[in-house]
């Protein structure tokens, strides 16, 4: 890639980034263009990756070598598209049921072992090691067990929550709140990190190497909004007059 292409790329990336951010001030045509480009480019990326990584090596090449068996799953895959034609949409069931059966068959043993048995084991196991644990570790293990049981009671809908059951499930809510609080705190950090990433890129494109792309485009957007506000104000006055 030549230097020129890198500069063009910088201007394009800075432009698209600022166009998308401009929505925060006000909806505008530049944002809409970038938004629609995103939809198309995202789909285009998925399409090209699927074609080059799966369709060509896994379907086209084997078929051209005479391995015709791969045609069966390909037809099942294509059958999904009959969803869009109501009259024959039932054909898509062949593809869906084939995927669902396999997925469910795998999910049952994995779910049972990983998220059910192992979690119960993980809650109980520390109590077999009490002798080697510090009092604080014993307290923590007991708290995990107590908390997990309370939360489970909270999710236990088969019986009406009243009396002792209500008290236990209420305690469960507090454990959930701590978990959600931790999740919220972390979400703040995650979102800021993403914004940092874009700002960092914009800062890079503001350099002389990219011919100050960020500054120029940002100024352009500000001028656009000013001019737009001016014209909008005038047309309002004209209507009033």
């Amino acid at each position: 890639m030549s230097e020129t292409w890198i500069i063009i790329g910088g201007w394009l990336a800075a432009g698209l980034t600022i166009f998308l951010f401009s929505f925060l001030y006000k909806d505008n045509p530049f944002f809409k263009i970038a938004e629609h480009l995103y939809l198309g480019a995202g789909m285009g990326w998925l399409f090209q990756v699927s074609v080059t990584n799966v369709w060509i090596p896994k379907i086209w090449e084997p078929v051209s070598k005479g391995e015709l068996l791969v045609i069966i799953p390909s037809i099942m895959g294509l059958s999904l598209l009959t969803q869009f034609i109501p009259k024959i949409s039932w054909i898509s069931r062949y593809g869906f049921t084939f995927m669902m059966g396999y997925g469910s068959g795998l999910a049952i043993p994995a779910g049972l072992s990983t998220d059910f048995m192992s979690q119960i084991e993980g809650t109980i196991k520390p109590f077999s090691l009490l002798a080697s644990m510090s009092p604080f570790a014993i307290f923590n293990s007991a708290l995990i067990a107590f908390g997990a049981i309370c939360v489970l009671f909270y999710f236990f809908f088969s019986v009406e929550h009243k009396g002792h059951l209500k008290k236990v499930s209420n305690v469960g809510i507090y454990f959930l709140m701590i978990y959600f609080g931790a999740a919220f705190g972390n979400t703040v950090m995650a979102r800021f990190s993403l914004l940092y990433g874009r700002f960092d890129d914009l800062y890079t494109f503001s350099g002389a190497k990219y011919l100050y792309a960020t500054q120029f485009i940002l100024t352009g957007m500000v001028i656009y909004f000013l001019v737009y506000a001016l014209f909008a104000g005038r047309s309002k006055n004209a209507i009033k007059a």
């Binding site: 779910g111 049972l112 059910f116 809650t123 708290l143 999710f155 701590i178 978990y179």
Partner: peptide, 22 residues
Amino acid sequence: VPAVAGKRGIMIGISIGAIVTS
């Protein structure tokens, strides 16, 4: 500790639901 307790309760609950649905 507390976040593990909260999440583990959710996890066990969801796993039962997922197994039944499957």
